[in-house]
Design a protein around this nucleic acid. Structure first.
Length: 269
DNA sequence: ACGTGATCCTGGAAGC
DNA sequence: TGCTTCCAGGATCACG
């Protein structure tokens, strides 16, 4: 279940192996992802990967004629492997490099995406995204202005890509716990002081997860190529019915916007 | 403009 | 044991 930290860890894992490398071949075995893989990805052949960057949960392979834009969805994985590695189920796309390495995209549930953006174009998926959570652009003044008058639950609000990118269900639950805000509170009713706290907690929890993911980087190429999930101690996510680690109250579970939500009724009001 | 809920897909878990 | 049902997740879209 890749959230922003997992995507960033993936980026850090693959970038050193493919930046500066020339692409020989692009093999699309199954184009049925979230959107059909466009034929234009063949334009990657012969191109040099100038940089591997990230925008929200999208990974961008930047080449002179355009950019391949990848999304891992919820079950997508990217591995850099030798050409001798046998394919497994759901290996949908291979990018073969001149040095013999392959960037292989595997995605059982096909919620992921493999898109193409010509260098002079703007992909609609990227056009309307909110700020990156770990930049100064995401600050309390911005969030106050954005939340003004909104009736939507604060949890749904911070998971909205147009508000801030990269905050998925896990980290939305966690950051609201740390900020002491009830997830169902109307976004426009949360005080500036508490939004200040929320901004801080979102940044902290994401940065921490990236840091912990980083510790597995050395093993990135090993075994199944899975960068691993974070050994992070989750305070509320997946712990409905358990006792709050701060006040011992029973953690409550509810659905907000179809998503599992766990919170402490004492700590979060 | 805003808010809600359905939808895509598959594998694993839970229920019968 | 084997079948069915439910659930997870991000992002988009159709609706009121």
């Amino acid at each position: 279940m890749p959230e922003l930290p997992e995507v960033e860890v993936t980026r850090l894992g693959i970038a050193p192996h493919i930046e500066g490398q020339t692409i020989n071949k692009v093999i699309v075995r199954d184009k049925r992802l979230r959107w059909p893989v466009p034929d234009e990805v063949q334009l990657l052949e012969g191109q040099v990967v100038e940089a591997v960057t990230r925008r929200a949960k999208y990974l961008l392979l930047q080449c002179p004629v355009g950019t391949a834009i990848l999304h891992l969805g919820m079950s997508g994985k990217l591995r850099v492997i030798d050409s001798s590695v046998e394919r497994i189920k759901h290996d949908h796309v291979d990018i073969e490099f001149a040095n013999g390495k392959i960037l292989r995209f595997n995605d059982p549930r096909r919620f992921g995406a493999f898109l193409w953006q010509a260098s002079n174009a703007q992909l609609s998926q990227l056009a309307t995204l909110g700020p990156e959570p770990l930049t100064d652009e995401f600050n309390v003044d911005y969030l106050v202005a954005k939340a003004k008058g909104r009736q939507i639950a604060i949890k749904t609000f911070i998971m909205d890509n147009h508000v801030v990118v990269g905050v998925g269900n896990i980290y939305a639950n966690e950051s609201l716990f740390f900020a002491g805000i009830h997830p169902k509170t109307a976004a426009g009713k949360v005080s500036k002081a508490r939004l200040t706290r929320l901004v801080e907690e979102i940044k902290t929890v994401l940065a921490k997860a990236i840091e912990q993911g980083g510790t597995t980087l050395k093993d990135f190429m090993k075994a199944d190529g899975n960068p691993g999930y974070f050994a992070q101690e989750l305070m509320v996510y997946g712990r409905g019915g358990e006792h709050c680690q701060v006040c011992a109250a029973e953690l409550k579970e509810m659905k907000i916007g179809q998503r599992a939500t766990v919170y402490c009724p004492e700590c979060q009001r």
